[in-house]
Simulated scan of single mutants.
Amino acid sequence: MIPTLLKPIADYVEANVKLDVDGMLKPFVVLDNGGHHEGRAELRTLFEEAVIPVKVIFTPDTVRHENGPVVVEGLAHGDLKGSPIRLTYRFTLENDAIKALEITA
């Protein structure tokens, strides 16, 4: 069962299911995925190079709040080695936007 997610997180997840880069970018301010990616151009490049070619779809199955960040866990599947992979997304939200996101396996 997919948990209830806050709107910017739900918007990101919904766009990811469609592999819609513009939709994935919409709720973001900053993303940290093993490196700092700031601004829409850097995030677009990251999504276009790391998500879209291998069709990575994240399906959340748990959500919890940790003194600020919203932690969402689930499986990511696609055309990548070891698929599906269990990932943890740590969302920092600000003013109905994703201020920061850290993704770990």
Rank of each mutant, 00 (worst) to 15 (best):
V54I: 12
L101R: 06
V30M: 11
A100S: 15
A15S: 13
L31D: 07
E102S: 13
V21H: 08
I9F: 02
V70F: 09
L101A: 07
P60Y: 02
H77S: 15
F58N: 02
E38W: 01
P27S: 05
H65W: 07
E48N: 13
P27L: 03
K26Q: 13
R86P: 01
K26Y: 08
L80N: 00
V30W: 03
K7A: 15
L93T: 08
L101S: 05
V29T: 14
D20Q: 11
H77A: 13
D11A: 15
A15I: 04
E48P: 00
E42Y: 01
G82I: 06
L46Y: 15
E94V: 11
T88G: 09
A105D: 14
D96K: 14
R44Y: 07
T62D: 10
R64C: 03
G74N: 05
E38Y: 06
V29W: 03
L43A: 04
H65S: 12
A76D: 06
R44H: 09
G35C: 02
E66A: 13
R40V: 00
T62E: 14
V51I: 15
V71C: 04
G82V: 06
K55D: 07
A50G: 01
E42H: 04
A10K: 14
R40A: 12
N16K: 05
E102F: 10
V63I: 11
G82L: 07
D79E: 14
P3T: 08
K55Y: 00
P27Y: 02
E42R: 11
M24T: 03
E66G: 00
V63C: 09
P27M: 02
S83W: 01
L31E: 09
K81L: 08
A76T: 12
T4Q: 14
A41I: 04
R86Y: 09
A97F: 13
F28W: 13
E94Y: 12
P53N: 04
G23S: 12
V63G: 01
V70Q: 10
A10H: 13
I85Y: 03
I103F: 01
T45R: 15
P84I: 02
H36K: 12
P8K: 09
A105I: 11
E94A: 15
R40Y: 00
D79Q: 14
N33R: 07
V30I: 08
G39M: 03
E38M: 07
Y12N: 03
V17S: 11
L87W: 08
A76V: 06
A15F: 06
V70P: 03
D32L: 04
D22H: 08
G23Y: 10
K81D: 10
L43G: 02
M24D: 02
D20I: 10
A41P: 00
Y12V: 01
V17Y: 13
P53A: 04
L19E: 08
K55I: 01
E73N: 12
A100L: 15
H65E: 15
T59N: 09
V13G: 09
T104K: 10
A10P: 06
K55W: 01
V72I: 06
A76L: 05
G68K: 09
A10G: 13
